[in-house]
Every structure is written in structure tokens, then in C-alpha cells.
Design a protein around this nucleic acid. Structure first.
Lengths: 367, 367
DNA sequence: CTGTTAGCGCATTCAT
DNA sequence: ATGAATGCGCTAACAG
């Protein structure tokens, strides 16, 4: 193994000064092409890798990106992280991972993280409510991008989906299949997406001249158990009142619903049609397979981290096009132009039609 | 947001020297309790957090732990990471995450990671074969702990399970249920665990005076698709030759098996009993629920990171150029507790009995 | 016990 | 276009 080299060593071997080596490393233009070549050869031959620590200290900028995420066992986190990791690999940054339990207060942890000034920016993946700390940090210049399910109502650069419209499409699908008595499993009120998905549901009903029936809207906590409870309630209704279809605000609750249905001998989709939300890995495997709204988690991760790197770069350099991202021009100009409207990017969802709703084949979402 | 403080500021506010502040921060004992108290008060009041970057540079030791992991979408990674993250939260270290695609050659990535000397140690989660780089690094003093499925045959501190015995127990369970024609779905030969699990399978057969039938051993690549192919093969056998039970070397292939069974109207467990390996989240939900060997992924993560922190601490506490690569042999053996045998922890697995094997209730593993 | 001094490896002025 | 000098925030040696 090569023993560790410093810029000093490279400078000596290449017959130049440390400053010149530093210039080459940092892609400065004011270097003689000849000299550059010589330095680069030494660097490659010896396998020199600059110390990220020292350069961070000296340059007053870090090459680490902090990622705050809930425990990986949350069903959607792995997919988001896959997108994040792929982009990070291509970048010059490394990722520092902070696992945050959303149940606990994370103010302290945040303080520690920010206070350390270890990272050049923060990607925050947080379901549920957001800490006020984050807005403070952002206002003071720390680049932050948030992925959450709260909808575009926060004051930070935000990546998410259009919950309202997605729910609208899901419900509309059921209506187009002929259902009139459509129930809705809400999530907890603490999540803003709960209200949005509910609104989309109601909107679809109204458009079809169906009067929303409050008895058909029941609430769970986004967990299987809550779905079970709701199932017990709904399936106990008299056959005249019982819904013929259910739109669940997430897949997990739909699973609970399906369990209860199986136990009671209620056939899906013949007796009851079900549509979920999220498209978890399990949803394609459970029997019957679950029709659901797919959230583009992988893309959300990619876009979020790309946006964050954008911020960081433009914070460092004076906005010269540092890289080419597939981010809409409007967004880029917003970033660079220093506009004061918050940046919000809603990624498109897609209705994945499977067995649980009784449709024999996928229908176009916009149909 | 508090503006950034340095040790300098704290020193001034507390009326002591920078060195003293540093001593307090680093829990040195040679500080007057009174002085310590005063410094700590200032630190807390002002919310001072030392720069991990600067201290890393000056102290020649990093407070970052590198974690090399395959993409999070690998089914077992999230659980391992949960264990890792929980331990990290309690420690003074931060985690730098490197996502490594096991398909690609990861030598380059490793070089970059190691060369950067960013991290004080490495936790490596790698299915499949291990890079030789890692052993080199370790021999030169970089603390490393490996979690993999290769069995205890590598020269690095290792956390894993007893594949052979686990497979033995799984097969034995099927035998105790009365099965004599038991097939085995192997994994790819590139994984050492494949051979081990096969050995455990054969051993159980032999102990029960069952002659292993080579036609009943088929191979997949640990993926659902491979399981499907194996299913086609096995279920096409004549009723006299067809196995009555199958032990699959992992759950994913068992899923493929179950799909084919469903398509052919073969009933699990009445027509065929199935046991898997891993206990993936899906395994408890798929119908029928899958009997399988549970790998303690969460615990593996915990134990691995704890062991690694142990190494790192003991490397630091000996004080002598602990982070240099050309570490004295004496120190290396000290890290290993003076023993020269490599450190290997095999965590216990557990057979989770569910519906797919036909047993009506859990049987004790040791029964 | 505590203050002083000297770097850690690099980026960034200044000079030239 | 290049080299010399200064300092990032902190730890570690050495004195007192």
C-alpha cells in the first residue's frame, strides 16, 4: 500500500510549489498546461488523494453533505436513499448520514449537527412535522432541501408530490369503474398530506355528483393495525351502507384492510375494490396485488440531492453554471437569481393498476 | 442561529487558555474541577460545538466512521443499518456512508475512500466476494469490521451467522414433519454461504438416513426469477420423483417458487412444503406466510459497529501513531486482544415457523 | 494544574 | 504563471 502523501510530497516530486499543486487540484485556470500535466502525472502515479479534512478547514468549505433520514426501515427511505447515493457517487461530495427518529424531538440532534458545521448542506427526509430549527438554519445561509409528505407549504426548498391530485386520480379511477359508494381511509391529522389526499378524494366525488358520506371516511395512523380497525368498521356495515370500494391513504393501511377482508371471506376485488397510496415493494406481491398510487421515491432522492448540490455550488461559486442537472430552467433561475419565492418541486405520481380494484388492464391516468 | 464560536471565544469568555478549553472538551483529567465547571457553563450557554474538521486535522484522528454498503434496496441492508445507526447515535462518531454496487469493481472506490483518510475505521457490508484491498488496509492498521455472508473464512474481523447449522436446522425441521424427498435451491457459487447451506442440508439428510438426490438440488441466483425457474423444473417432475418439500437458500427464490406453485395450482403446504432463508419483511405477509431462517440483521449491525468502535478506541488509547498506516505489529495484536486468531462473531439464527411448511405451530429449534 | 508554542494539510492571499 | 507567506480551528508537545 502507498503510504500517505501530502501536497508537499507531490510538489517536491513534480518540482513545483505547493500552491501550484493546489491550483491543479482545484481546477484553477491560471496554470501552465505543461506544469499541470506534470503535476497530474505525479498525482496519478502516486495515487495522491487530498485530505478532505484539511481542505475543508483551509477553504472554509466542507465537502460533506448531511442527510437526515428516519430509520431505514421506514418503507420509503431505501428507495429515496438509492437515488441520493447514485447522485452522490458522481459528485465530489461525501454523505454523512444522520438517522433521526421522528417520534423524538430532534431539535437537539439538529443543533449538534448544525453546530458542528461539518456539512456544506442538508438533505432532510422527514415525514411528519418539520423542526423550526431548519428554517432558522436556512435563513442563516445553510443550504437545505426537504423531502416530505407535507405538501408545498413550507418555507424551505421542497421536493414532494401533489397529494391532492394523486388522490383525485385514484378516486376517479374507482368512479370510472362504476363505484359510487367509495370509502376513504385517512391518515393521521398530524400529516398535512392527510388533508390533501382527503380533499382530492372529495373533489373526485363531487365532480361525479356523488355526495360525500362522512360515515365512509375513517381514520388510521398509516399503519397496518389501523387499516384492520377501519376494515372492521366498514365491513360491519349493512349491505346497503357498505362501500363497494375503498381508497386508502397509504398501502400499509390497505394491507390491514385486505387482512380483514380475507378473514371475513370478503373477496377483493369482487366484493370490494381497493386502491392504496405509495406503491410499496410489498404491494406488487401481496395477493391480490394492490392497485396504488406510485410515489417516485427514487427520483425524489435524485432531484433533491441535485438541487442541494446546486445550492451549494452556487453558494460557493458566483452562480456560474457549475453543472448540468436535469432541473427545469425555471428552478435553476430561481436558485441562481436569488428570487425570494420558495422553491418547490412536485414530482409526478402514477396510478399503478393491479388486481385489487378489479380493472382488467391498466387505464391511462388522464383518461 | 447562534453565530459560530471557536475555542478561542470560549477561552476568552471563560477566562482561560485555549488549551484548557480543549482539555475540558476532550475529557482530560488534569483540569481543576472548578475551571472545568466554568468552561462547561460557557460552552453550554453559548452552544459551542467544536469543529470536527479542525480537531480531526490537528489530532490526526477522525471522528467519522465509514460505512460501505450495497444499495439500500438490498433487502437486508435497512435492518443492518438500523442497528448501526442506533449505536452511532450514542457515540461521539458520525457516519459517512458509501454506497457500493457489488456488481462493479469497487477497488477504485475503496482507494478513494481509504486514500482520503477521512474515516477512523470502516464497516463493510458486502455480499459476495471481498476486495483484497480491504485486507491490505487492515494489515496496515485501519480498523475494519466486515459483515457478509461468506462465513468465517476471511482474515478480517467478521460478523455473520452459522450458515451451515442454520441450513441444517431448517432441513431437519422438514424431516421432522415427515418429509423424505426434500429439494434444495442453492444460491450462486460465488457466495460462500451457498456451499455452507448446502452442507447443512446434506448433513441433515444423512443424519436421517436419507440419500441426497442430486436431481433435487437446483441452482438460482438468489433472485425471484431463479426461484421461478427452479420451480418449473421441480414441479415438472413425475409425481414419484417430485419432492414433497423444498429448502430454499433464500427467501427471494422461495417467492419465485411460490409464484409458480400458485400458477400450477399446487397447494402450499399441502402439496409441497417450503422453507426459506433470511426472513425478509415480505415473508411474514406473503400468502401462505413463509417458514424461514431469520437472520439477526439488526443485531449484526449493532455488534459490528460496536466492535469497530472498540477497535478504534483501543487504537487511539494506545496513543502511538494509531492512525498511521504503518502501525506497529504490537499494537495490532493488542487490538486483537493479544490473540493472533482473527475475530469472528457468529450470531444465532432462528427458525421462524409459519404456514408454508405445514406445521401448525412453532416447534422449538432444538427439539 | 495551566499557559505557550508549534504545527496538522491545505487554500488563499500576496508578491513576483 | 508561479512561489512564499499566512491562517483555518484545533490538539499536542513542552514549559512553568
Amino acid at each position: 500500500m502507498r503510504s500517505k502523501l501530502t501536497i508537499q510530497d507531490v510538489a517536491r516530486l513534480a518540482g513545483v510549489s505547493k500552491a501550484t499543486v493546489s491550483r491543479v487540484i482545484n481546477q484553477k485556470t491560471n496554470v501552465n498546461p505543461d506544469t499541470r500535466e506534470r503535476v497530474l502525472r505525479v498525482i496519478n502515479e502516486k495515487g495522491f488523494v487530498p485530505s478532505i479534512t484539511a481542505s475543508g478547514l483551509a477553504g472554509k468549505k466542507s465537502r460533506l453533505i448531511g442527510v437526515l433520514a428516519p430509520p431505514f426501515t421506514s418503507p420509503f427511505v431505501p428507495e429515496i436513499m438509492r437515488g441520493v447515493a447514485e447522485v452522490m457517487e458522481q459528485s465530489a461530495y461525501e454523505m454523512v448520514l444522520y438517522s433521526i427518529n421522528p417520534q423524538h424531538r430532534h431539535g437537539d440532534a439538529l443543533d449538534r449537527i448544525i453546530g458542528m458545521r461539518l456539512t456544506a448542506g442538508l438533505l432532510v427526509i422527514l415525514p411528519g412535522q418539520l423542526s423550526r430549527h431548519l428554517t432558522d438554519m436556512h435563513d442563516h445561509g445553510l443550504p437545505i432541501v426537504v423531502i416530505d409528505d407535507q405538501g408545498p407549504f413550507i418555507d424551505l426548498p421542497w421536493i414532494g408530490i401533489d397529494n391532492r391530485n394523486s388522490a383525485y386520480q385514484a378516486t376517479r379511477h374507482l368512479i370510472k369503474l362504476g363505484h359510487r359508494r367509495i370509502a376513504h381511509l385517512e391518515g393521521p391529522t398530524s400529516h398535512r398530506c392527510t388533508a390533501e389526499r382527503y380533499e382530492g378524494y372529495v373533489q373526485a366525488l363531487l365532480e361525479a355528483n356523488i355526495t360525500p358520506d362522512p360515515r365512509l371516511v375513517v381514520q388510521g395512523e398509516f399503519l397496518v393495525e389501523g387499516g384492520r380497525a377501519c376494515g372492521e368498521t366498514l365491513f360491519s356495515m349493512s349491505s346497503r351502507e357498505r362501500p363497494t370500494a375503498i381508497f386508502s391513504a397509504n398501502d400499509q393501511m390497505a394491507f390491514g384492510l385486505m387482512e380483514v377482508a380475507a378473514e371475513r371471506g370478503i373477496c377483493i376485488p369482487d366484493d370490494i375494490a381497493i386502491v392504496g397510496f405509495d406503491d410499496m415493494p410489498l404491494s406488487a406481491y401481496i395477493r391480490p396485488t394492490l392497485t396504488t398510487v406510485r410515489q417516485p421515491f427514487y427520483e425524489m432522492g435524485r432531484v433533491a440531492i441535485e438541487l442541494l448540490l446546486c445550492f451549494i455550488d452556487s453558494a460557493f461559486s458566483t452562480g456560474e453554471k457549475a453543472r448540468e442537472w436535469d432541473i427545469p430552467l425555471s428552478l435553476l433561475s430561481a436558485i441562481r437569481g436569488g428570487m425570494h419565492e420558495p422553491i418547490r418541486y412536485q414530482l409526478p405520481t402514477r396510478l399503478i393498476v393491479r388486481e385489487s380494484c378489479g380493472a382488467k388492464q391498466p387505464l391511462p391516468l388522464s383518461g
